[in-house]
Design a protein around this nucleic acid. Structure first.
Length: 302
DNA sequence: AAAACCTTCAACCGCTGGGCA
DNA sequence: ATGCCCAGCGGTTGAAGGTTT
């Protein structure tokens, strides 16, 4: 009874991914773009189920992922959004395009929950219980509507040539509109270079000098390191073509993420979000307590 | 030095909902 | 209208590394 497994368990590998597997997956997506995950194990020869491939890509190999410590701003935003949306990590992650939902979820469970727990401990009741008592689903629904509206606005504004967010070149990172491709390229390069670096370091035959996280040297490394791979032909394609094919044939979600990334870096999303939420609440004139609760509680924490 | 305990996070599991025949 | 397939999501697990005793 029950739902059959997504893939037959026989011959399906589980556990941590090896650099070799990563490279095969990346090279496949390089050619075909993300999506149609069902076909990925068949076409690549990877002994992984489609879910595992998708997860590996979205949580680790996807371009634009930032790893490491969360900034104060990111932390505040997560707390903020969690108060508004609950444990809807994918929705929260859409406002932190450099972070995966899995990362945010882990960070919440390992860091923020404790942090909040300490602070809330002195206050008595938890914010969660408040939520339930105040009609959580109605509010979530409202938030969903707001999010949809915002997404539409953003989508429409992308077509405008003079987006103020795009004009900013004061950030240290290359984030102008004409540099988005470069950024994407660098990000994916960094991800893959990192895994290659680890791979090379682990390999007794390899020289650590051969690998650099510098994107300019990556292509050489990439082809050199893979000359014995079974899918050499696919892999020898440059990452530049990966980037361009990705941007052309990849799913809309990837493009949206890139667009989010540009805006995130240049526009202080927390204030933007707050303004949006406050404006909306004020316009409706019926949810002041909701905003007070969401913003007030998190504001106290810092 | 080593055992016990704790923390982190990558990966898995199972459920849900949308698309399609 | 119905059932199947698939992608996506959130909760959970467990291995690995770090810290404490």
């Amino acid at each position: 009874m029950g739902r059959p497994p997504c893939c037959d368990k026989i011959g399906v590998k589980k556990g941590p991914w090896t650099p070799e597997e990563d490279i095969v997956l990346v090279s496949y997506i390089q050619q075909h773009g993300p999506g149609n995950w069902r076909a990925v194990p068949t076409n690549t020869g990877l002994l992984r189920c489609s879910k595992s491939c998708r997860l590996r890509w979205t949580n680790y190999l996807r371009p634009g992922i930032r790893r490491g410590n969360f900034t104060d701003q990111e932390e505040k935003m997560i707390i903020h959004l969690q108060a508004l949306l609950g444990n809807r990590w994918a929705a929260i992650a859409s406002y932190l395009p450099q972070r995966t939902d899995n990362d945010i979820k882990n960070y919440w469970n390992t860091h923020l929950k404790k942090k909040l727990g300490k602070i809330e401990g002195g206050k008595g009741d938890s914010s969660e219980s408040k939520w339930i008592s105040k009609g959580q689903w109605e509010r979530r629904l409202q938030t969903d509507i707001h999010m949809a509206r915002q997404a539409l606005c953003e989508a429409l504004s992308l077509d405008k040539p003079s987006d103020s967010a795009m004009e900013s070149n004061q950030t240290p990172l290359p984030q102008r509109a004409d540099q988005v491709q470069t950024t994407t390229y660098a990000s994916s390069t960094e991800n893959i270079a990192r895994l290659l670096k680890n791979w090379m370091n682990k390999s007794p035959n390899s020289s650590s000098e051969a690998v650099s996280s510098d994107s300019s040297s990556f292509n050489n490394t990439f082809s050199a390191g893979l000359s014995s791979s079974p899918s050499e032909g696919a892999i020898s394609t440059t990452l530049h073509s990966f980037n361009s094919s990705n941007s052309e044939s990849a799913s809309a979600s990837v493009e949206t993420e890139m667009d989010h990334e540009v805006k995130f870096e240049t526009q202080m999303p927390l204030t933007f979000l707050e303004k949006w939420l406050l404006d909306d609440a004020a316009a409706q004139g019926q949810d002041g307590d909701f905003m007070d609760m969401a913003l007030g509680e998190t504001a106290d924490l810092f």
